[in-house]
Design a protein around this nucleic acid. Structure first.
Lengths: 187, 187, 187, 187
DNA sequence: GATGAATGAGGCTTCATTCAT
DNA sequence: CATGAATGAAGCCTCATTCAT
């Protein structure tokens, strides 16, 4: 019976993220979450004030690493090597918080209305800024944006390509690294 | 009173797409669509059997050009120039049906449960196949996927970058063309 | 294409009765009737003012024979033979208008609120009066009611009993005739 | 405000049966039931998953005695006295659950589509089997069916006959008992 | 920590009906 | 004779949320 005690809050977040990622935020009801946990809806309200609060909690927990990444990046010299290291670390984040990112990709409309969501978009732009060279050409700017999205797309859409997951991860990373290198050279 | 006659069906689709793109499919209610058209909810049901049917109608209308593109591509020789032309035409499609694609990007969870959605994913994979070289390396495969997503991301996320829209479009296209060229060379 | 012309009114009644009998009056929608006839709902309104009017029309057409039966019965001497002849003829009516009676049996609640329905109940009571002897015992009164209901039940529930339909019909009739005979003797 | 607590579920069933019997199942809306209980529609859904579930609940509660009757009958020797006792007990059931049976008689179309409804028809046939002699004539079979329906009809249609209810009940029962006796003799 | 009972708002859908053409 | 388009009312149902216990 009793799952380890006192972790209900985390169990809620975990099940919620799973369902949000799978079905979307709007489509997922508290009843569903409660049922999957074998708990009453009212119990959810003991731990979170609203449905959105559950989402916010998930965000805060899972985006912390990204904030650290940004903070760290801000302290480094703006060399090519730094930029590439940013991409490497970003890909690690992406994979670690895969369900969250999948969810964000699929529920952009909802997320963007969250206060947390805005913060997130800003974070992505910040990241992008750290990779770009201030006065670079539009083409090189597009390369940088493309590099970030290659990591995203690669993580979620290479699923349809055959091959060892680890090899695919490396291939995707390589393409992204190439793109910033070209952007840097163009400069 | 009387808005131009006989075009109600199309007006519904147009307003619906607008709202779906803006707020997401689940979040948009038929009441909202009806109100914005100054029509009763029941009127929507005269033209479409269900809410999902509205979406399906939009899809069918707006993805037709992509089918033509795929058909055309299938008849061409698989040269680098062909592949690049595919990307050029794909970008045109993307821009023409911008709200639809924005919607699909933001409502992946919903769309993927639509029969039309499946068809769409298949179409993207088909397109990807037409760009790739059969025996290429994983890295080059990633480059091709990246090229397609660069067009997507570029079309919707370059909005945050300063510059003339047409110039930005060209810059994004250039990056995508580069990527398939590199993939081709690698081969 | 064109079914024989000009009979649309009757085709509506026929299809409607079929559906009413099968699904009940409330559960059957005009859309359904229209679709089954390959006609628009609006067309139904050309022939009938309301949904209830369709039902009323059916009643009037199909209960006419019963009115004749009652009229005829009123003119006969009140002998046992007359009473039995009434039952014989009633069974014929019952079988001829089987779907109507099935419908009435299954939708009593609806029918009883129809003006036509009231008339119908009165008709049944009138029939019952013609079979009963004024001062008979309660038991004999029950026998007469039972006789009528035996014909009804028999027509619709002997379906679950094996045997030639015609033989079953005769068996049921025999029981009903017996019952009035006993009622008569008791007197 | 506060009606006696904790009995809401039963109050719903009771009011629902009343309305179903009076107006028919389809014609009765959940709004009506809720209003009569001074409760929200949503409250109904806390206690029952669907409208049909309310009906199913009523059935299960009210048809239990009939199951017991059938079980008891199965254990008795198949004498005339047993059969008559079955009819006596059946009439008691009929009167005790009068609204349910009235409802079933008037909403056959709806009920027969319920899984519970099927069960019910089977129960009636089982009862009929317990009363009949295996190899009897069609006429005697009709007599047995007639006996059961006499109880039904009698209970609900003798209302239009003058007399003390208890006396009428006895009269109806007598007719039914007679019928099985004749069927038995015929054998 | 959690439940049982309930609510108010709102969702999608269907219906009978109307009317200009 | 019949249709196409639309309406207003109402249906069933689900949701996020609350609160006394």
């Amino acid at each position: 019976m009793a799952q380890a005690r006192g972790n209900t809050r985390q169990r809620i977040q975990s099940v919620a993220l799973e369902l949000f990622a799978e079905q979307g935020y709007e489509k997922t009801s508290l009843r569903e979450i409660a049922e999957r946990l074998d708990v009453t809806k009212a119990a959810l309200y003991y731990h979170f004030k609203t449905k959105e609060d559950i989402l916010i909690g998930i965000f805060q927990d899972l985006t912390a690493p990204m904030d650290e990444l940004i903070a760290w990046a801000g302290r480094q010299p703006r060399t090519l090597e730094t930029k590439q290291e940013i991409l490497r670390r970003y890909q690690v984040n992406l994979i670690a918080a895969a369900p969250l990112f999948r969810f964000m990709q699929d529920n952009h409309a909802v997320v963007s209305k969250l206060s947390v969501g805005l913060t997130f978009k800003e974070r992505m732009l910040t990241l992008n800024d750290l990779i770009q060279e201030p006065g670079s050409s539009l083409t090189d700017k597009a390369r940088c944006i493309s590099a970030i999205f290659t990591l995203h797309a690669g993580t979620f859409f290479m699923a349809n390509v055959e091959g060892d997951p680890e090899d695919k991860r490396k291939a995707v990373l390589e393409v992204a690294l190439d793109l910033v290198e070209q952007a840097q050279k163009g400069h």
